[in-house]
């Protein structure tokens, strides 16, 4: 009921959505994170995602398990994160959840992506025309 993946291949959104289908679910909620063309006013050319794979997978599973504890009615949870080089519009992360009713599906999906961004060991470097920056590295 929890599916976690970290991949250097393009994320198949339809596959992720199908993976949370459940007969007891009246709601499927999805967050799709994509690469934006600018960051604090600087034009972004590409991103490079680096992961500490074993810890990232472990922490992603823990986040999903915490969501199931908070919302026991969760039917299925899928989180897929991309790594490697991504360009504008590419999909970096997909979170998909299914629940009996819609309210919990929004809440659980938001909890998972918000917590992922705080604890999961993945790092993003933004590349501009005139340089590059590790996102959030410095105050």
């Amino acid at each position: 009921m929890i599916h976690i993946d970290l991949t250097d291949q393009p994320i198949a959104i339809a596959v992720a959505l199908r993976s949370v289908e459940a007969d007891g679910a009246g709601a499927i909620n999805t967050f799709i994170g994509t690469v934006r063309n600018q960051s604090t006013g600087r034009a972004v050319i590409r991103l490079e995602y680096e992961a500490y794979d074993s810890m990232a997978l472990h922490q992603l599973r823990k986040v999903a398990e915490q969501a199931v504890e908070k919302w026991p009615m969760l039917q299925k949870v899928t989180v897929v994160h991309r790594k490697g080089t991504l360009y504008i519009g590419d999909v970096a992360v997909v979170v998909a959840v299914s629940t009996p009713h819609r309210a919990e599906s929004f809440a659980a999906c938001q909890y998972i992506i918000d917590t992922l961004k705080q604890v999961v060991t993945i790092w993003k470097k933004e590349f501009y025309q005139d340089g590059d920056v590790w996102v959030a590295a410095h105050p």
Partner: peptide
């Protein structure tokens, strides 16, 4: 053991 600088996934 690993050093974990500020994460920035998502």
């Amino acid at each position: 053991i690993a050093l974990i600088p500020p994460v920035s996934g998502g």
